[in-house]
């Protein structure tokens, strides 16, 4: 498994982040590292990320993925990150175990779509949208490790800024990243 070894720190560590089926709460938590963002900027630069607005990922050292896999687009984005990153980190409950979106998994996705789009009241009955631009829903929401190989997991809904900082700096400094009580939590 790859670590970002200190010796490679002549150049900045390149990090990509994305949110699949998540709420961006984990990204908010990433910003919660507050002034340490400046320290991070010293040693890291960002590839594809809501922070940079780069749409496609290039080769990078660490990819941080928030959110579960809910639709076809999520699959493509996740695979692009996996293909480009040396290390892939699942960030937050949804990426780790499906989280809130996976609570739909006991509902049949077909019935769900039909209920939303075709059984509307007041004569507004329509059809389930069929525009190819729309990402098609998977029948179930999956954590990202059921779709690609994942190297590290940071649970939490969201993980705290401290936990993210601890984990990231462990990784970047080449230590085996570790989260213990009370930084490790699932909620």
């Amino acid at each position: 498994m790859f670590h970002v070894a200190p010796t490679t720190r002549k150049r900045k560590v390149r990090i990509a982040t994305t949110s699949l089926s998540g709420c961006f709460g984990c990204h908010m938590s990433l910003l919660d590292i507050d002034e340490r963002l400046l320290a991070l900027a010293e040693i890291a630069e960002f590839d594809r990320s809501p922070i940079t607005d780069i749409k496609h990922c290039g080769p990078c050292d660490i990819a941080i993925v928030e959110g579960g896999v809910c639709n076809a687009e999520n699959v493509h984005v996740l695979r692009e990150l996996r293909a480009n990153a040396k290390v892939l980190v699942a960030l937050g409950a949804c990426a780790v175990n499906g989280g809130l979106p996976a609570q739909r998994n006991h509902v049949d996705v077909g019935e769900c779509l039909a209920r939303v789009y075709t059984h509307r009241s007041e004569g507004q009955a329509g059809a389930v949208p069929n525009d190819p631009e729309l990402p098609l829903l998977l029948d179930k929401v999956h954590p990202i490790n059921e779709v690609v190989r994942v190297d590290y997991f940071v649970p939490g809904c969201p993980p705290s800024g401290d936990a993210i900082w601890k984990y990231l700096t462990d990784l970047i400094d080449g230590r085996i990243p570790r989260l213990e009580h009370p930084m490790l939590h699932f909620d």
Binding site: D108, G110, V128, P129, L136, L138, D139
Partner: peptide, 15 residues
Amino acid sequence: ALARARSVSGRDDAA
């Protein structure tokens, strides 16, 4: 895993 949504939306495009 996309089959159910394909069927209710009537889609069969590449995406």
